[in-house]
Computed example of a mutant assay.
Amino acid sequence: MKFSFTEDQRLLADTVREVLEKACTPEAVRAATRDDRPGPAWRALAEVGLFGAHIAEEHGGLGLTPLDTVLAYEQTGWFAAPGPIVETAVAAPLVVAVGQLPEIATGSLIVSARPAADPYLPDADLAALLVAGSALAPADGVALTPHGSADAARRLFTAELEAAPDDPAAFDQAALATAAQLVGLGRRLREEAVGYAGQRRQFGKVIGSFQALKHQLADVAIALEFAAPLVYRAAYSLAHGDPAASRDVSAAKNAASGAAHRAARTALQVHGAIGYTDELDLQLWLNRVWGLRPAWGDDGFHRARLRDALL
């Protein structure tokens, strides 16, 4: 199958990248680990219409498909944009009441959502609406219990909510968007590692000249180049109603998760001891990878679903 993105699809991604370059600097992401949440990136994405991308035009959205937005979600990963973006923009429009769609499209209604089998609601303290599977509950009056999170800009909570079975379309589209974010994160980490390897010196040479390090960085590049087409294929399958779309989503999420994890480990090793420090911006992307890997189905879930689909 020959496939390429359209000019409009690339333009949306370029627009998201342009606004996030200004609104989602490392300083802004770091501020979101403290109190500035969801932060200026949320407002910027609302202004370009990303929250209404999957909402029909008659409800104030753009009426786009997952194939139209997958590149844009890569950009939200590249910048580690904080807030429940996937939960609000991708999962929620498929399960909330029609009357709430215009509020989502403008970004004024923040939604925290989780699969039925997952206990944790991301960024639930910001949300006005909580979704567990396909069950909805207003956040007012629901007691939230905070839990430790690998990513301080993506806080986790549990709540006394009775989950309903997952909406299959909402789950798959959220898993796909998360996979796209992981690809974007992996590419950002690769760039950070390559850049640092060209500057850091040991034994009188830049470490990027060492053969062993070249091999590690090449492995990261290969993993990302194999994962990205699987993500795009899953987006194509969802957009065209392919009966095997869930299989393709699981293949994409599993590959993107593994590639981003490899990129994170390699970037950390390239930076050495300084990579563990909170002061280094690298931590922002490392933590987001570790926070998103279990989101919308962990590696074990998607491997099992892929196995069942194939066998």
Score class of each variant (00 low, 15 high):
residue 213 L to F: 08
residue 217 L to Y: 06
residue 193 A to V: 00
residue 205 K to Y: 11
residue 218 A to K: 07
residue 187 R to V: 00
residue 224 L to N: 04
residue 227 A to G: 03
residue 198 G to I: 01
residue 210 F to C: 06
residue 205 K to C: 08
residue 210 F to N: 05
residue 217 L to V: 07
residue 204 G to Q: 05
residue 197 A to N: 01
residue 188 R to N: 10
residue 210 F to A: 06
residue 211 Q to P: 11
residue 194 V to E: 01
residue 201 R to Y: 12
residue 213 L to Q: 08
residue 205 K to E: 09
residue 189 L to V: 01
residue 202 Q to A: 13
residue 226 F to A: 11
residue 197 A to E: 03
residue 192 E to P: 05
residue 191 E to W: 08
residue 218 A to S: 14
residue 194 V to R: 02
residue 218 A to R: 07
residue 219 D to G: 08
residue 207 I to R: 08
residue 223 A to H: 00
residue 198 G to F: 07
residue 216 Q to L: 09
residue 188 R to S: 07
residue 214 K to R: 14
residue 191 E to N: 11
residue 210 F to R: 04
residue 193 A to Q: 00
residue 197 A to L: 04
residue 196 Y to N: 05
residue 206 V to I: 09
residue 211 Q to L: 12
residue 209 S to M: 13
residue 216 Q to A: 10
residue 223 A to W: 00
residue 198 G to P: 11
residue 214 K to L: 10
residue 207 I to N: 07
residue 212 A to S: 15
residue 208 G to V: 06
residue 194 V to H: 02
residue 201 R to V: 11
residue 213 L to W: 06
residue 214 K to Q: 15
residue 224 L to V: 02
residue 222 I to W: 14
residue 215 H to T: 14
residue 192 E to A: 04
residue 216 Q to H: 15
residue 210 F to L: 09
residue 219 D to W: 08
residue 211 Q to M: 10
residue 198 G to Y: 06
residue 189 L to N: 02
residue 188 R to C: 08
residue 225 E to G: 06
residue 190 R to Q: 15
residue 197 A to I: 00
residue 199 Q to R: 06
residue 191 E to H: 10
residue 202 Q to W: 10
residue 201 R to L: 12
residue 190 R to H: 14
residue 187 R to C: 01
residue 200 R to I: 04
residue 206 V to K: 11
residue 200 R to P: 09
residue 203 F to C: 10
residue 200 R to C: 12
residue 227 A to T: 01
residue 216 Q to E: 13
residue 195 G to I: 03
residue 193 A to T: 00
residue 190 R to F: 08
residue 202 Q to P: 06
residue 195 G to T: 01
residue 205 K to V: 02
residue 213 L to Y: 05
residue 205 K to R: 14
residue 198 G to R: 05
residue 189 L to Q: 02
residue 224 L to Y: 02
residue 190 R to L: 13
residue 220 V to N: 00
residue 199 Q to S: 14
residue 202 Q to M: 14
residue 209 S to I: 08
residue 220 V to H: 03
residue 187 R to S: 04
residue 221 A to S: 15
residue 205 K to T: 05
residue 199 Q to V: 04
residue 211 Q to C: 08
residue 201 R to H: 11
residue 199 Q to G: 09
residue 190 R to P: 07
residue 192 E to C: 04
residue 209 S to L: 15
residue 213 L to G: 05
residue 223 A to K: 02
residue 223 A to C: 06
residue 202 Q to E: 15
